[in-house]
């Protein structure tokens, strides 16, 4: 199988404090048609890892070392212009907050169409037809293309975000906590939709979440991050059911199960640091 994305030794530090490693020597690969989940608590560096792949790190942060290869080509030293041609076209991205990532004064149809015009040069009726087809694909009636974001529910807005991110049929999709703000039933629908699109379009998906339940539902492979480092990596079954690292075990012990059989156990950090 071909490697879609290969990240080796990625390290990110604040520009004014190069000694503090927010992301420390992170390596992983992603294959087409597969989903890799990055799990971790707040501040573990999971979002920074995803932003680095897109070249979207804030200017106050530096990627000090590491290589990022997309379809075999190094993309770390590409110019912003060159990256812009990849972003949105070959790599799609979905953000956490469907309320704030859409522009409130533009119709959702216009926002979906933007990347189609920029990357593929679609215009007029062809553009309209493509927007309608995309809305249909994510389960929104095509006539809603003229709606403004505030006229849609949270779940519908997240569907619009998905339609935007897959508009140019990207090879890879990066989803940063795309269902965290949604109700459970809506979350289940969105996860099923993403999984179906991934299979149909043979996309690779890099999925960031803090919810082990979501991981169990959609991941093929899992990376567990703790304080900037990958502490455990492996297939979803290995990591969830045969965790090796003490942090992974401790974190799994904190997750309540739907059966209520499990005794919750908070993480004992003092013991972790000694180990």
């Amino acid at each position: 199988m071909s490697e879609l994305l290969s990240v080796q030794g990625l390290t990110v530090t604040p520009a004014n404090n190069p000694g503090k490693k927010l992301v420390n020597n992170v390596s992983f690969t992603l294959q087409s048609g597969k989903t890799t989940c990055i799990v971790g608590e707040s501040g573990s560096g999971k979002s920074l890892t995803a932003l680095s792949v897109m070249g979207l790190l804030a200017t106050s942060l530096n990627r000090t070392s590491g290589s990022i290869q997309f379809q075999g080509n190094e993309i770390t030293h590409l110019s912003n212009d060159a990256l812009s041609r990849i972003r949105g076209k070959q790599i799609g991205m979905i953000f956490q907050e469907p309320m704030t990532s859409l522009n409130p004064v533009l119709t959702v149809g216009f926002q979906i169409g933007e990347s189609l015009t920029v990357h593929l040069g679609l215009k007029g009726d062809a553009l309209k037809a493509k927007i309608a087809a995309l809305l249909e694909q994510v389960g929104i009636p095509p006539e809603r293309a003229n709606a403004y974001p505030d006229e849609l529910s949270g779940g519908q807005r997240q569907r619009v975000m998905i339609a935007m991110s897959i508009a140019c049929e990207p090879k890879m999709l990066i989803a940063d906590e795309p269902t965290t703000a949604l109700d459970v039933t809506v979350q289940a629908q969105i996860l099923a939709l993403l999984d179906e699109l991934k299979t149909r379009m043979n996309m690779g998906m890099l999925f960031i979440t803090h919810d082990f339940g979501v991981v169990a539902d959609i991941a093929d492979d899992v990376l567990v991050m703790f304080r900037g480092e990958v502490v455990e990596a492996g297939s979803v079954d290995e990591v969830l059911f045969k965790p090796q690292h003490p942090y992974t075990k401790a974190l799994l012990d904190c997750v309540p199960d739907a059966e209520g059989k499990k005794q919750l156990k908070p993480i004992d950090y003092s013991w972790l640091e000694a180990a």
Binding site: T185, L191, D211, G213, V214, V215, A216, D217, A258, E259
Partner: peptide
């Protein structure tokens, strides 16, 4: 029933 079915990770467990 639908609410309980939507709990993520249930199938795997």
């Amino acid at each position: 029933q639908n609410l309980l079915k939507a709990i993520p990770g249930r199938a795997k467990q």
